[in-house]
């Protein structure tokens, strides 16, 4: 039997119709070269001016997107900051338990009265503690990249996502994030997830409800 996914004929037909529509008989080397050259230039569109203090802009826009924030002075202070945050939520049940990315496995979670395990989650965990690859000041966005030590689900499945964002990793816009990716990584990860506040829906009568599928809360610890 033919492979149901054999698709070369459809591909050729579609491309032939595209070329016919563009009045080309085949690949046009000059035009194609110009189109390829455009890609290599990585042209920016018009940009809004960003303040010199990117952190202030980031905090303001993250709050606009319903994230909450706290600044922490050093890594060791993270568990206590998380504890303060979950206590302030006053939610019944086991909100002191959850999972974290390996980069935070060494922190003294138990000392802060938290039960944080270093493992990926398959759902059912209350807290998900992650780092951030970078963060975008223009929109208050936390950027995470998928990888063996950065399981995506930790940002998504727990009720509360706590993201540790080093202030040194703040960039002004999405363009600077892409430039950083090209500089620091040879190839793209499977997923670049840009997170701007908690999961929300407005699908019933345009009324905004947080926690549609993903976290109800996104709390950002901005690490100096």
């Amino acid at each position: 039997m033919d492979d149901p996914l054999a698709n070369a004929a459809a591909r050729d037909n579609v491309l032939a119709r595209v070329r016919h529509a563009l009045r080309r008989t085949g690949p046009d080397p000059n035009r194609a070269a110009a189109a390829v050259a455009y890609v290599a230039r990585h042209v920016h569109g018009p940009r809004s001016a960003m303040p010199a203090d990117l952190a202030a802009r980031f905090v303001e826009r993250a709050q606009d997107m319903s994230s909450t924030l706290e600044c922490v002075a050093h890594r060791r202070a993270i568990p206590a900051a998380v504890r303060r945050y979950v206590d302030a939520l006053r939610i019944e049940g086991a909100d002191r338990a959850g999972v974290c990315w390996p980069e935070f496995a060494d922190l003294d979670w138990a000392g802060a009265g938290l039960q944080i395990e270093c493992r990926p989650t398959s759902g059912g965990d209350r807290l998900g503690i992650t780092g951030a690859w970078c963060a975008i000041a223009e929109t208050g966005t936390v950027v995470v990249l998928s990888g063996a030590d950065t399981p995506t689900g930790t940002t998504l499945l727990p009720d509360t996502h706590i993201a540790v964002v080093p202030a040194t990793r703040l960039v002004s816009g999405m363009e600077e994030m892409f430039a950083l990716l090209r500089a620091e990584r040879g190839r793209l990860p499977r997923a670049i997830n840009m997170i701007s506040g908690p999961s929300r829906t407005g699908d019933i009568e345009q009324t905004i409800v947080l926690g549609a599928h993903g976290p109800f809360r996104v709390h950002i610890l901005l690490l100096d």
């Binding site: 063996a148 995506t152 997170i195 701007s196």
Partner: peptide, 23 residues
């Protein structure tokens, strides 16, 4: 919707890498 950005913007490229739990 009048938002400055949507809450989730994902850029997906290729398949799950070595040792990756999700994807």
């Amino acid at each position: 919707t009048g938002q400055s950005i949507s809450n989730y913007v994902d850029i997906l490229t290729g398949v799950r890498g070595a040792g990756e739990f999700h994807g």
